[in-house]
């Protein structure tokens, strides 16, 4: 496998649009050509070579190309845009739109990621070791084409609207999640292992959401169905028990919301509907 290492030459001030940093664009190219790839530094068109120190050699195909990014790239956006294969390893924190419209391959971030991780993602895997911002997997404003396939794993916390307009795939948040996980969701699975700020599955039409931690309340347009023993994510059984709700009934939705019974004693009153 070919490896290319990128290091920022300076500390970036303005946003860097780096949608050319993908194994697809790097594969089969010598360093000199990779350095010529177009980038934007604010309103100036520039090249990768002007902004980054590049070393190593790429593989023949995207599949055998790994890109390692060292240093602070919190201002750098759209890394892994539409990538289809190969790997990107970011050894720090990264800017917005990481892996936007990604189709395959893998991205690992050792630090935090800003908002819109995996925006409109269609395949592949993204793993964030730290925290993620808002709108994980979400599309742009007004659009309804959210994440369709693939997996996003966030080891830390995630912000608001995880999996907004999600159409498929899996999102796992090992820490806590903000408001509105699974808003407008149609299909796919969201697992939040920590607590959630609430309004899970607002306006969802389908798909599954499970919250293993605390939720302040369940939306009034969800109806309580039963207590379930477990929940499955990617074939793996997650032990409950869970309160299972269906919603969002306001949207004639048939989404499933699983909420830990143990961490949510304040929802016990729903059990009166069991008989």
């Amino acid at each position: 496998m070919g490896e290319i290492t990128l290091k920022p030459k300076v500390t970036f001030k303005v946003p860097i649009i780096a949608e050319t940093i993908t194994p697809d664009n790097f594969a089969g190219k010598p360093i000199e050509e990779i350095e010529k790839l177009e980038m934007w530094e604010g309103n100036r068109k520039t090249t990768l070579g002007d902004l980054f120190e590049a070393a190593g050699s790429s593989g023949e195909a995207p599949a055998d190309t790994k890109i390692i990014i060292e240093g602070d790239v919190r201002k750098v956006r759209r890394i892994g845009y539409k990538m289809t294969d190969g790997q990107i390893l970011i050894k720090g924190s990264v800017g917005m739109y990481l892996g936007e419209k990604m189709e395959g391959g893998k991205i690992i971030v050792e630090g935090d990621a800003d908002s819109w991780v995996g925006a409109g993602m269609k395949g592949g895997q993204i793993e964030i070791k730290g925290n993620a911002g808002d709108y994980v997997g979400a599309p742009y404003r007004g659009d309804t084409k959210g994440m369709k396939k693939g997996t996003i794993i966030i080891h830390g916390n995630a912000g608001n609207e995880v999996g907004c307009w999600m159409r498929g795939g899996t999102i796992i948040v090992k820490g806590n999640a903000g408001l509105f996980p699974g808003i407008h969701m149609k299909k796919g699975t969201i697992l939040v292992e920590g607590d959630c700020a609430g309004r899970c599955g607002a306006m969802m039409k389908g798909g599954k959401i499970a919250i293993l931690g605390y939720v302040p309340s369940v939306l009034p347009s969800f109806t309580f169905e039963e207590i379930k023993k477990s929940f499955k994510v990617k074939g793996e059984k997650i032990k409950g028990p869970f309160y299972l709700f269906t919603g969002d009934l306001n949207e004639n939705g048939a989404g499933k919301l699983y909420v830990s019974t143990e961490k949510n004693k304040h929802l016990q009153f729903y059990e009166k509907y069991l008989e």
Binding site: P139, Y140, R141, G142, D143, T144
Partner: peptide, 8 residues
Amino acid sequence: ILRPEDHY
């Protein structure tokens, strides 16, 4: 205004 998705 209603349709940003129309413009992108």
